[in-house]
Design a protein around this nucleic acid. Structure first.
Lengths: 109, 109
DNA sequence: ATAATGCTTAACCATACGGTTCACTATAGC
DNA sequence: GCTATAGTGAACCGTATGGTTAAGCATTAT
């Protein structure tokens, strides 16, 4: 199971974000991607492996060319996590409830 | 200006995600946070500095204790970026339009 | 005044990470 | 069959990163 921070770590690099951004417009081959970033092909490969390891990207081999495609699901999961985290004020209502709990003989620590 | 990948990099560490998660419930002092993660206080400090550098967290000194608080804005920005990226299929309609553009004498490359 | 507490800074260490080059495999084209 | 093209793998390198300990500063408590 892939954790949220792993997806964030994968997105937390300028080159990888650039790759992701490119892939929003259309799918690309590995060497097309490498051509965009003034880094070597093996360097690009490493980034692709990181992105693929968290499911953000998938690769399909056709003949000798490999097509790289963006996968929306992990992005959605990360987005949901961010939304839940950002709306922490609702959680803080629970916190208010906790304070009341302090003056009661209830457990629920 | 803080870039998206910087926010993602900040969230892309298990300890820092843990800190953020804790702060969704309520604000904490620095040493409270340090107590939760079996890492030293200076280690915790480093993580806090990273989170603060991208604005995800803010610190307020009161006397000798420092209160750490979650800031929703950068999380929202990251969330928006993810949403835009995830809904790349709509962008690919533009791509389809591009193909038509190829057979036309229009520019718009 | 002294001691204890809360936080910070500095120096250091091992490992992970982003990059490279070189060698290799596999498919496509002549 | 030979050559060119697309992608991979392996080894290596410098720097960034996550962690530590030790020392220092500022505020609170005795």
């Amino acid at each position: 199971m892939v954790k949220h921070y792993e997806v964030f770590a994968a997105l937390g690099d300028p080159t990888r974000q650039g790759i992701v951004d490119l892939l929003t417009r259309r799918e690309r081959t590995v060497s097309e991607l490498a051509g965009e970033f003034a880094i070597s092909l093996p360097g690009t490969l490493k980034h692709l492996r990181v992105l693929q390891s968290v499911g953000v990207v998938s690769r399909t081999k056709t003949g000798r060319t490999v097509t790289v495609r963006l996968e929306p699901e992990p992005l959605g999961a990360a987005e949901d996590y961010l939304r839940r985290t950002r709306t922490f004020w609702t959680h803080q209502l629970d916190n208010l409830a906790d304070r009341f709990a302090d003056s009661k003989p209830k457990e629920l620590r």
